[in-house]
């Protein structure tokens, strides 16, 4: 198992560099120039050149990438051109908010999604299954922007239970978590149900029934154990999206976070901010995938053999 983890870890290095190149090129190749945002009315015409040189934007792209990635490897993400602060500080401010929101939503849709999926599978083709799957289909099709506003209207305006927006206190987290969580719940519930239903058809399940084991014990102890393997893999992959999967929700609920930071960076062409955010989000996805592989290998020896 250790050899497997080491091999997989080494593979992460080229993937990380490939992601860094993509993150760097994405913002540099789209039209737009951060200097345009820095120039204000009254600045002399030569100010453009002064600022371009000051921020190293006159250098060839390869050189700019080299300077940036060398800094990143040394722990220096650079200084935001427009936001005027070290990017690491900006991310340190934003990250706790994104983690709080993303992790809460993750826990919410994991617990609720798995529970609903299991219930649907146990009551397969009966009314609880149909009701859950209809609800799940509905939940997965609601745009988060619209759902967020709807939840605000119900819980903040009509009922007055929760604050409309902001990031002050635990109560301000409830509606954003619900907004993200309902979409995630739909995915997890469907995957859990499919995996459960497939496992229910396995021979060993028939054998357990033949041996007279209680059907509920079979479902919750044996079937769920096997069915969780693909669910855990999918959930591990989603860890990467915990940080960056809430961009719309952050905007609607006026919450700070990595998503909001990234959007501001893109709008202003603040290269160091966009590069760092994209690199961090892609690194999170890479690590999530790695974690998914490791968990899958731990849970299923057959998978370990095929992955090595």
């Amino acid at each position: 198992m250790l050899g497997f983890i080491i091999k997989r870890s080494l593979l992460l290095i080229p993937v990380f560099f490939a992601a860094s190149i993509v993150a760097f090129l994405l913002i540099h190749l789209v039209p737009g120039d951060p200097v345009d945002s820095l120039l204000t009315v009254g600045s002399p015409p030569e100010q453009r050149q002064i600022l371009t040189e000051r921020y190293g934007l006159d250098k060839p792209l390869v050189v700019q990438y080299g300077i940036w990635i060398w800094g990143v490897l040394q722990g220096d993400l650079g200084t935001a051109i427009i936001m005027r602060r070290p990017v690491a500080d900006l991310m340190a401010d934003a990250l706790p908010h994104s983690i709080a929101l993303g992790a809460s939503a993750f826990i919410f849709y994991t617990v609720i999604g798995v529970s609903l999926g299991v219930t649907a599978a146990i009551f397969r083709d009966r009314w609880p299954d149909r009701a859950i799957m209809t609800g799940v289909l509905f939940g997965s099709t609601l745009p988060s922007f619209w759902l967020g506003l709807l939840l605000m209207l119900v819980f903040s305006v009509w009922l007055g239970w929760l604050p409309v927006s902001g990031a002050r206190g635990a109560s301000s987290l409830v509606l954003p978590v619900l907004t993200i969580g309902l979409g995630g719940t739909a995915l997890v519930a469907r995957i859990t149900r499919v995996a459960m239903v497939e496992t229910q058809r396995k021979d060993f399940v028939m054998l357990l029934h033949a041996k007279g084991m209680h059907p509920l014990r079979i479902q919750l102890l044996r079937v769920l154990h096997h069915a969780l393997i693909p669910v855990v893999t999918i959930l591990a992959l989603r860890i990467g999206f915990v940080l960056g999967g809430a961009i719309t929700v952050e905007v609607v609920f006026a919450r700070p976070g990595i998503g909001t930071l990234l959007i501001r960076g893109i709008m202003q062409h603040d290269y160091p901010v966009v590069q760092a955010c994209l690199l961090m989000l892609s690194t999170a996805v890479i690590l999530g995938t790695f974690l998914g592989d490791v968990l899958q290998a731990l849970m299923d020896p057959r998978a370990r053999a095929s992955l090595t």
């Binding site: 605000m152 209207l153 903040s156 409309v164 006026a254």
Partner: peptide, 18 residues
């Protein structure tokens, strides 16, 4: 002074006394 980028949200904040 709160920063609410989304106009619908700031309108709801006014409506609810936020």
């Amino acid at each position: 002074l709160r920063e609410i980028g989304e106009a619908s949200t700031s309108f709801l904040e006014l409506q609810t006394g936020g």
